[in-house]
Amino acid sequence: MKFLVQQQPAYVYTGGKSFDAAKPSMVFIHGSANDHSVWTIQARYFAHHGWNVLAPDLPGHGKSFGEAKTLIAAYSEWIINLLDNGNIEEAAIVGHSMGSLIALELSAFNPSRVSQLVLIGACAPMPVSDALLEAATLRPAEAFDMLNIWGHAPQLRWGKNPTPGTSSMMAYKRLLEQSRPGVLAKDLAACRAYQIDAVQLMGNRTRAMVVAGAHDLLTPAKAAAALAAQLGDGSLVTIPDVGHAMMQEAPGKVIDVLKAFLKP
């Protein structure tokens, strides 16, 4: 469905159910140069299990209007405006990769709006190599390949995609290729520039869970564990055999860890 966020039309996937702010709300925030479709399976599950689900395309991404932001804080403000316009007082916030930094920022500076926090494929700070950032700026196709190949666990790159008839690698490649020019570089730069200090992390009073992929090369499990350890009231779940693209690599396992953690 369409929302108006910061005076621009924004697309929000609601998991196949009508928007209903009377239910407990859950917001899924996608990563760099992605869109809502990385959450389709999880969003459908929770939308059909009592939640009011919002999986927006961030500005400049997917079907949403506007420009991609240059700062994680600006994306966080955009999500706050989405919640405001949806008359949602608080929501469980689930972020992946860059979306996890947006979720972290939301929780740090707008804790009253965040009922529970889930950070998937996350670490803070989130280093982005010079080589990746340069490729995203100058040779985006090369950067897409880096993100795609490093984003999948080696044993799952070319086999046994759990969604019948689809190649996770080829689908993700096409999704990145569909991103608007310059968006990946902008998003990666925003990730690299994002700083949150230990005091803010320790001060977190929101129930939080970090979900790590055991074979994640982009946000390694070790870095995810360090983030979980720093977060006040934080816990860690590591999914074996998956990489960074775990919503596609193991959609059912991601649902299961979310289901075990989240309280309506």
Partner: peptide, 27 residues
């Protein structure tokens, strides 16, 4: 049935052996 989880239900719609062929052709 509602596509909230991935997997196989009935071989007219999908089947693990077919999925290998389909994923290979996609690649």
């Amino acid at each position: 049935f509602n596509l909230e989880r991935s997997g196989h239900v009935y071989s007219r719609i999908s089947n693990p052996t077919l999925s290998v062929f389909e994923e290979r052709m996609s690649a």
